[in-house]
Amino acid sequence: MSQTPPAGIDERSLDHAEEWLADRALLGRGDAGSMPRRFADHLDEGLDLAAAALDLALFPPREVPPAALRARVTARLREVAAAANAAATEPRAIGASSTASTASTALTALTGGFAASRSGSTGWWVAAAAIAIALLAWLPSLDPRGASPKVGESGESAIAALRQHASTKVVACACTDDPLCRADKVCGEVLWNAERQEGFLRLRGVAANDPRELQYQLWIVDSSRDARYPVDGGVFDVPAGEEEILVPIKAAVPVRDAALFAVSVEKPGGTVVSERRFVAVAPVS
């Protein structure tokens, strides 16, 4: 290895670090494993850049992106820029649960996996949409600034901040006829802000679950995407004795045009292929 080892690092250790960096450049961070912390300040991105330059040299970019993609990407970048500016002056929402991140990882596999193996499985979203349309006929309008439910202070603060945004949508959440939903028709609300990619599900009257047996999972139907690939909004539990819960929505991928939120009952940890047992739906009118 011709690179001069930094002070305090022997050549053998540097070789080890170089191997790690080469793996990272070719295989990604996860496959490369954990980087020895003591090397972190001494190594650069030279191998990543070499791999990138080689990629461009071996396989020159030739494809022209779809014309519509430009508008999508630039609009999203403006949202990000605006959110970054807003974040500098406004408090952030409370964090999502750890179970949500597990489900997010799982759903990341959904889009590709479905495309490969379940290309014809549109049925359950069609069914969900049908339920939503039927419920729209009798759903009462929900005052977006209605009485505060009994949830934690931090959650209420985050919701209050989100409500102040003009672009935040507030939609009523309706019970299905599933026995796990015991509310009388309306069982909560969804607040969603597409610019901030942030939202909350407030749910009440839904039966407590045993996480060892089942969990609830939130899905988001994004009308800008293929209907077969709903976006995972996270996995959550309803603890015993809690009449009302507040769930931060952690969308696994950007949601551009939310058309429907739905809560399903799934196996512990969530799923990438839903059991299609819905307890609540919230259509965005």
Partner: peptide, 28 residues
């Protein structure tokens, strides 16, 4: 860089929809 990023994404992604999502994430 749209063409560059799109070309890379098409090579790595299984379908155009996936590639479009990837392009968006990359620009962010």
């Amino acid at each position: 860089f749209g063409g560059l990023v799109w070309s890379l994404a098409r090579r790595f992604c299984a379908n155009p929809t996936d590639a479009e999502d990837a392009v968006q994430e990359i620009f962010i």
